[in-house]
Nucleic acid binder design. Structure first.
Lengths: 171, 171
DNA sequence: TGTGCTATATATAATGT
DNA sequence: TACATTATATATAGCAC
């Protein structure tokens, strides 16, 4: 009970355009991330939102996801990495990363950031399944490398009231 | 007789990865263009190709298409624009645009550029159907604004031996 | 290596809440 | 105004040339 066959032209209706923008923007970012992951290349998308005056840049909002995927497929890591659990997760470098984010945003979202990071990790089943392949230092490095992406996710929490949809692996 | 359900991870097989890259890259660019057109916003994608050392940037290879779409949906233009034909097409400003491209590339691809431009215009059925809505000056401006995109298409001709696929409207 | 083809997986326009 | 649903439209992986 629905028809499509949209003409490729500017959507005049405000509500419709906004809805379409949101859907397509998310999927576009997902596609960028998938391309990046599947082909092992760097990619990003730059979009100037409907109402935002200055261009918005996404060097991949799901960068964490991508980097985690890369880690999983790095042969060198598949052999001699150590196991870790939730307790050891919150250690020095991770805490340092947290501080960085705090300073960066001048807010107090430690809890949120932690939740989001774990959300990413759990979505990837890294924590439960593959964490044994990842060294603690590598994880810390990984988080360090993705502070900006995490920060963006936090901003999305602010704007939408909830974290952006976490991409699920269909393996 | 085909199965998908791809795991979101680096594709190890070279041929498969390259094929996937090509398909997804094209569709990604199409998506960027569609989002831009449908929602009237600026968007672009940056991708670092598999073998290319330096990042490749596409402020939309189909930018011409998008801008043409915008023109078609601009209400102001729908009323008092003049008709034009292929003879008047190649006039002053267009020729100036051509010179610009020449200087820009230090090459002699006037013919190719012209063909590509017409290819775009024909793909949009602008030349035959909607050209009456577009003023010659606007068209010249349009071409001016998209010199870089046209230039990129010319580069693609060099690299692939043929112009990149022109997006067809499914109206 | 590149093109087409087809079955599936995804994306998404329209609609309801 | 945003979110959930669902029928259709697109995208695309796996093959065949």
């Amino acid at each position: 009970m629905t028809r499509k066959k949209v003409k490729l032209a500017f959507i005049v209706n405000d509500a419709t355009r906004k809805a379409t923008y949101k859907k397509r923007k998310n999927n576009l970012l997902k596609k960028v991330d998938e391309l990046s992951t599947l082909c092992g290349i760097e990619a990003c998308a730059i979009v100037q939102g409907p109402h935002e005056p200055q261009p918005h840049i996404w060097p991949s909002p799901w960068g964490v996801h991508r980097v985690l995927s890369k880690f999983r497929t790095m042969p060198e890591l598949e052999k001699n990495k150590k196991m870790m659990n939730h307790e050891t997760f919150m250690t020095q470098r991770v805490l340092k990363a947290k501080e960085k984010v705090e300073k960066l945003r001048k807010g107090n979202r430690e809890q949120e950031m932690t939740m989001i990071m774990f959300q990413c990790l759990n979505a990837e089943k890294i924590v439960h399944d593959d964490m044994s392949m990842i060294d603690l230092n590598d994880l810390a490095w990984l988080i360090d490398q993705n502070l900006k992406d995490i920060d963006r996710r936090l901003e999305e929490v602010d704007n939408n009231g909830h974290p952006s949809q976490v991409m699920t692996t269909q393996s």
